[in-house]
């Protein structure tokens, strides 16, 4: 069984079984491929170099739209312009955190530096956002319903399995954030 992250003398430490590591790695890879999927091949190299992306569109996939939301509520034009200027760097930033976390899973011991911890918390958050879209979590009541499923013997179909996976990543992220808070308090 996984152990919750905790903050101690060695910093932030945790423990995951091999099967749990595989599961997480798969989730991280899924989100990485979502974020990488519409990378364009024949784009203007100069525009790419300075991070511009004039062909970018608002994502049609809800989960991707949640990861890369519009920056203005009622201004699609303004939001699109913002995407052209910034979406590439947001994607790259996220992919960087997800990949760093996946690499961290290859180490024997989960001992996180402060930087690792930030990457892990961002990566787990993005994984949860994507799972939540797949699970159709739209409001707090949906979230509570999903959260009530804690027993792996309940995993009878894809949805219940996803719900349990979601709850596992929620638990893991919560323990990580509590550890990060503890680390922060210890420093100050």
């Amino acid at each position: 069984m996984a152990k919750a992250f905790k903050y101690g003398l060695k910093g932030i430490t945790g423990y995951l079984e091999p099967a749990e590591r595989d599961l997480l790695r798969g989730l991280l890879d899924d989100v990485i491929s979502m974020l990488e999927s519409d990378a364009r091949e024949n784009e203007d190299p100069l525009a790419a170099l300075i991070g511009l992306d004039m062909d970018v569109k608002q994502p049609s996939d809800r989960a991707l739209l949640r990861l890369l939301p519009n920056v203005m509520k009622d201004d699609d034009g303004g939001s699109l312009e913002f995407r052209q200027l910034t979406e590439r760097s947001v994607r790259e930033n996220k992919i960087g955190a997800l990949k760093a976390t996946a690499m961290g899973l290859d180490k024997d011991d989960l001992v996180l530096t402060p930087e690792d911890a930030i990457h892990w918390s961002m990566a787990l958050n993005d994984v949860r956002l994507v799972l939540a879209e797949r699970l159709d979590i739209r409001d707090e009541a949906d979230a509570e319903h999903i959260h009530s499923m804690q027993d792996w013997s309940q995993a009878e179909d894809v949805e219940s399995y996803l719900a349990l996976v979601y709850n596992f990543t929620t638990w893991l992220q919560e323990s990580l954030v509590q550890s990060m808070m503890a680390a922060r308090q210890a420093k100050s």
Binding site: R66, P69, N70, M72, K73, S89, N93, M122, D126
Partner: peptide, 18 residues
């Protein structure tokens, strides 16, 4: 605030500017 929004989207928070 746009720069903050980029950072918030990086963290996965739902941020807008107005």
């Amino acid at each position: 605030v746009e720069q903050h929004a980029v950072a918030m989207h990086g963290f996965g928070l739902w941020a807008t500017v107005e």
